[in-house]
């Protein structure tokens, strides 16, 4: 991890849906070569932040820098640096995995040779090569997740954004995915992931942020989080529950 080189920089990111505040004011830096975990209870704002980062939704205010590019001023350049895997892998069902790769690769202007070679490598890694000529509509949730993950890597992005990467994956695939993220980090890439599987976050992440009700309530590496929760040596699960419950107790409405 290179703390001198911020790959993603959130500045005062806010998101309002009518009277509901999904994100209060997010300020966060994610550095090159870092595997950053973003945790929080359901509805805390994790997916909202990821969707803003990937340009799917617009924030109510704030600024995001992706590498040297302003996401809102130069969306094409910023987005080209990102590879995104959503929590629910809705894909084009009438395409085969290879056709889907061709489509996604085309949107990112990737050469056909690279699409084919990288696509094959990823499908073989996820044991889907034999099913390359079948329509995606016949795939299970986990298989679609693997196809989405493979497509996200085709254009060799510097930053990999993954929302709930292990949902729907069998234990072997979870292991494969974890190894895959480690390899990405080893090759100098940056990974930003959200997960509810705290063991995955504990195993993989260099730093973790915990978000609750649209606000980051804890940020740091495992030791810093343990210190923050006054629970040295405890698991991330204990730390997470302690911090989120503390925050809940401090809410005026819950007093």
């Amino acid at each position: 991890m290179n703390q001198n080189e911020s790959m993603i920089s959130f500045r005062d990111i806010r998101k309002q849906y009518g009277n509901f505040t999904a994100l209060k004011s997010i300020n966060l830096d994610i550095y090159k070569g870092e595997l950053f975990g973003f945790l929080g209870p359901n509805g805390a704002g994790k997916t909202t932040l990821i969707r803003i980062l990937t340009g799917i939704i617009q924030p109510s205010g704030g600024k995001i820098m992706v590498g040297p590019h302003d996401l809102f001023a130069q969306p094409d350049k910023a987005k080209a640096m990102l590879g995104y895997v959503p929590d629910r892998p809705y894909l084009y069902e009438k395409l085969t995995p290879l056709e889907y790769f061709e489509f996604m690769g085309g949107l990112y202007n990737v050469a056909s040779e690279r699409i084919l070679s990288k696509g094959e490598e990823m499908l073989r890694m996820f044991d889907l090569w034999e099913r390359r000529n079948e329509l995606i509509e016949s795939f299970s949730h986990g298989m679609k997740q693997k196809v989405a993950m493979s497509a996200a890597i085709l254009h060799d992005p510097d930053i990999f954004v993954v929302d709930e990467p292990t949902v729907g994956l069998d234990p072997r695939s979870v292991k494969l995915a974890k190894d895959f993220f480690k390899r990405l980090i080893a090759s100098g890439k940056t990974v930003f992931l959200t997960t509810h599987t705290l063991s995955v976050a504990q195993d993989l992440c260099n730093r973790i942020a915990i978000i609750r009700q649209g606000d980051i309530v804890a940020l740091g590496d495992m030791k810093e989080l343990q210190r923050r929760a006054s629970m040295p040596g405890n698991s991330l699960e204990d730390v997470f529950l302690k911090i989120t419950e503390e925050e809940l107790a401090q809410q005026p409405s819950n007093l």
């Binding site: 990937t54 340009g55 799917i56 969306p75 094409d76 350049k77 987005k79 080209a80 990102l82 995104y84 959503p86 629910r88 809705y90 894909l91 084009y92 069902e93 489509f103 996604m104 949107l107 990112y108 202007n109 497509a151």
Partner: peptide
Amino acid sequence: EGRAFWAVKSSPVS
């Protein structure tokens, strides 16, 4: 485009 529209929206293509 269906629910797969996220793929296009998150891509560099406007």
